[in-house]
């Protein structure tokens, strides 16, 4: 018997045990305060979403077109490499997003961690939160509200790099010429979200 045959039993896949161990690790890491970034995936009408949270709150929402692996690597580099699949911390965020897509919810009530945005971009995000459900604002108007009427392009960048799309509604910012403008989740997703909110 070759040593490969001798150890064949050891190499049988045991997905059930691994899944159980990963769940246990996430729970124990959270209890011990070393789960710096927890994440989960959520199916939605605009594709699978990645949701990530620190101990402070929701820190990242990423569309599939933004590449979830890249988003996780960015979280590891910018916040901490202690990143684990740990759905429990995202239960509330997932429920509120489900409700939003089912048109049972028009505003989010979640602790947010805005550390991935700073300076002017962060102040744009703060103003974005004031654009109500079912309404839109232009990039130009948002630049003026954020205190820098000339910074229309910078507002566009702030929207494109919004770490918390959907929850911070950058999809409600459109071009002043009536065109819909770009969106981190793709223009199709932006159309779908505006249509969802206008049916109210």
């Amino acid at each position: 018997m070759s040593t490969t045959d001798l150890f064949a039993a050891a190499h049988r896949d045991d997905h059930e045990t691994m899944a159980r161990l990963q769940t246990r690790l996430a729970e124990e890491a959270d209890q011990d305060g070393v789960l710096d970034v927890a994440y989960r995936l959520l199916d939605s009408p605009v594709g699978t979403l990645l949701l990530a949270a620190t101990e402070r709150g929701l820190v990242r929402v990423a569309f599939a077109v933004q590449d979830h692996d890249a988003a996780l690597e960015q979280l590891a580099a910018r916040i901490s490499p202690r990143v684990l699949l740990a759905p429990a911390r995202l239960d509330l965020a997932a429920r509120e997003l489900d409700d939003y897509f089912a048109r049972r919810r028009t505003a989010f009530d979640l602790p947010l961690d805005l550390r991935l945005a700073s300076g002017f971009r962060r102040s744009v995000l703060e103003h974005l939160r004031e654009i109500g459900y079912g309404t839109t604002a232009s990039y130009k108007a948002l630049a003026a509200t954020a205190g820098n009427p000339g910074a229309v392009r910078a507002v566009g960048t702030a929207c494109a790099t919004n770490p918390l799309p959907l929850v911070i509604p950058c999809h409600r910012v459109v071009r002043s010429d009536g065109q819909i403008g770009n969106y981190a989740g793709g223009t199709e997703a932006k159309h779908a979200l505006l249509a969802l909110e206008s049916r109210a």
Binding site: V37, E73, P81, R82, V83, L84
Partner: peptide, 8 residues
């Protein structure tokens, strides 16, 4: 991105 991959 420089640095370590996610622990997951």
């Amino acid at each position: 991105v420089a640095g370590r991959e996610p622990f997951e």
